[in-house]
Amino acid sequence: MQTIISISELSKTYAGGFAALKQVSLDIRRGEIFALLGPNGAGKTTLISIVCGLVTPSTGRVTVDGHDIIDDYRAARAMIGLVPQELTTDAFESVWNTVSFSRGLFGKPARPGYIEQLLKDLSLWDKKDAKLMMLSGGMKRRVLIAKALSHEPRILFLDEPTAGVDVELRRDMWQLVRRLRDTGVTVILTTHYIEEAEEMADRVGVISKGALILVEEKAALMQKLGGKQLTLQLQTALQAIPPALARYGLRLAKGGAELIYAYDGEGEETAIVDLLQELSAVGIGFSDLHTTQRSLEDIFVSLVAEPASAPQRMGEVS
């Protein structure tokens, strides 16, 4: 798939000496939903702020659809819409005026029909004449999305889009992101809510302490790292694992009342059938069984808990 944003060896050290980004390289593909995961202070916002022109990089290069974000900033920025993390709106303007203002600011001629549809899609139409300071936090979040989409961008950055929003808005926002993806818009969202990435993303990047430590297809990541576990409640507690079952790497729990089989999910599902047959053969009966899978959150926690690996280009799946 074609690359739409190319980030090469990007670093940012702030005036106080804090290194927010360390040699980050990343390719974002056209039309994908990319989730950038990381704990607070990991460098997510710095990364997207550099791409959007809000922060000056210390070293490195970023291109947006082939346009350098510094030398050819007009073409690069015209393609991007940004929904910031904070509810940063004017106070006294009306919804209609502020969204129309954003469209003009990004160099697009007035198109009232488009703005009307956008406000309707975001359930803002009946608030179009309301002053921004009169709106609730959720409504302000919708206004920020409308502003970001007002100039029909091809790339949308959502910085912590569902931080502090209610369930309804979160669901609406997920639907909106999918609709945008269906129209070819590339969506990059930063989040520390794993369920958000799990729900929406095509690919996931994990950033920790300014370094990108992993980029992977979400499904492949779950497959590779999201190990599964089969738990059997035994009819009779075992003292030890029978030698005949040694190759499965089984372990006992709850005083021998549970037998646990961990497998990595990469084609080992068939081994369960073999295991159950062999259990029957050695006379071990069970009253119940269930399987569990590591969530993206478990994977994330284990990744950021480990020291960041050496910087490397991580745009493509290995």
Partner: peptide, 18 residues
Amino acid sequence: FFPKFTRSIYELLSAPVS
């Protein structure tokens, strides 16, 4: 100053404006 104060200046700084 006011857009700086409300932090809505992010929009101006990220726009394709010289």
